[in-house]
Design a protein around this nucleic acid. Structure first.
Lengths: 131, 131
DNA sequence: CATGGTACATACTTTAGGGTAAGTACTGGT
DNA sequence: ACCAGTACTTACCCTAAAGTATGTACCATG
């Protein structure tokens, strides 16, 4: 990557940095801890809010909703709400989101390999994870 | 993924969550904004501190060093220091780190595709990025 | 009344991450 | 003196992200 203006105003430059580095581009969209995990869960098909909550038990509702909103804003997922009571909302991957399948599965495969080598074993076979 | 103990002590459960979800496993190691970017830069071979700094111009020295330390602690990179003045330190991917190539390149490919579709164009061809 | 279900919102607090500035130690050049 | 190079460290501050607790609205059941 070429050097751009040396500045200490990092946030200002971040707006342009993604055009210089593809991984930066991806990080802008799915960077952080939770987004890839949520996206991985949606690989196996649309899920309702409660399903996601149970699929990722370590996330708080507040953060889950936040992340879903951001993912929707970035057009990686769709949110479909039925006009019913009780609420009925379904989240699904967009085309762009589905295209992340290779990324997420590369992650999963790396995890399986790395966990095996470090003596930690997954409690399920890779076949059990959403694909 | 199976449901584990419903607890609001998220951090306590995170220690175990990675065993349930491979992507969580990966996020524990490379989650966040900067780590994948740094790892991507090291794909093309060992780099000295200053080279990394120039390769990722939007990162502050403080954060770069922090991230490098974490990556080293997680055994994704090696740090080799020569006993000379001025200092001469080289960072390189471990075997485990190199195994992330598929992940990082899947990201890069997704970025290229997504940027094309959204009308944003990378300033370099994919061939120009570290492989 | 309580509990369960659905999917959130809000207020406040805590934690984590990042930024800025200055510094360390040594060498060499202007 | 200053600046350049090498690779960090530390103190303080600020922002961002996450956590906790409570609430919303509606329906059904014990």
């Amino acid at each position: 990557m070429t050097t751009i203006k040396e500045s200490s105003t990092i946030q200002a430059n971040k707006q342009l940095a993604y055009q210089e580095c593809p991984v930066t581009y991806v990080m802008e969209k799915i960077g952080g801890y939770w987004k890839p995990i949520i996206l991985f869960q949606l690989l196996s098909g649309p899920k309702r809010y409660g399903e996601l909550k149970r699929a990722v038990p370590t996330i708080t509702e507040k953060v889950l909703i936040q992340q879903l909103k951001q993912l929707e804003a970035d057009q990686l997922i769709n949110r479909k709400a039925e006009p019913v009571i009780p609420p009925h909302v379904t989240y699904s991957l967009t085309k762009s989101g589905k295209a992340l399948r290779d990324v997420l599965w590369a992650m999963a495969n790396w995890a399986a390999m790395d966990s095996k080598e470090s003596g930690k074993i997954f409690r399920k076979n890779m076949k059990d994870f959403p694909g």
